[in-house]
Amino acid sequence: MPVAASENAKEVDKLFNFMMTIATGLFLIVEGALVYSLIKFRRKKGDTSDGPHIEGNVALEIVWTAIPTVIVFILAFYSFQTYNKLGGLDPVNSRNVPPQQIAIDNNDDQIALGIGKSFGKEALQVNVQAMQYAWLFTYPETGIVSGELHVPNNQPVQLNMTAKDVLHAFWVPQLRLKQDTIPGRQSIISFIPSLKGDYPIVCAELCGPYHGGMKSVLHVEDQDSYEEWIKSNQPVQEAYLEKTLTVDDSSSNEKFLTSYIENMDTEKDTVAELTHNYSHQDS
């Protein structure tokens, strides 16, 4: 597993290690029995006799039904607990929202499908739009539009995600978080990063030929450098718009981007459209 960049990610790792232990144990039991039989119970040459006529053993069968049952219950319970800790059952974030509603009223405090505890207004809100083949992050409070995601360390973040064309999925392996972005619907993830660093943002839902190149970077920074980043981007918002994508994106992964830089043209329109929407909302 890659490094865990949040407390929740550590919970997932704990669950994984627990399951891994159980699975290894079970596999060793089964495989041990098999290999032992393979060595011990080989037929001797010329022996045409049969093995013992044993058709079953009820007690034994009950035992090996009961043990997996117990394991399964423990596993389900533990996963449930972990899930709950991650905020999976959070009444706000995990609710399903009808598709059209979002398309109609695009306001801030709506509910959506997703994962993570909802922190409400406390959290840093970022609107995410996924498109073939790029990510677009809009900070509604400051109006910043960026191709990469910058967040301050140790502070709740809420991503309000949607997609422009087809399904995509937002995945940061280091956060162990993944959520599909769906055109016409909004999905939310929220998290608290706890480890500074730059982590890949990967698209995890097949979205076309360049699905593999649809990447961005999540910068988890300390408060100072985060604010600096905000400052350096904010004032030149309008003028900067043209550059946002090119500047920020090219720093992420030049190799991938060169191959479909032509796609960026269409995205400029989207950027314009988006900013228009948000300024409209503020007024």
């Binding site: 699975a23 972990t82 839902e205």
Partner: peptide, 23 residues
Amino acid sequence: FTLGGLTGVMLSAVPFDIHVHDT
């Protein structure tokens, strides 16, 4: 099959599957 089945059970645990889904 036992190996594959055991990873299947791991996948069914939601918090873990969220990480490894579509990988």
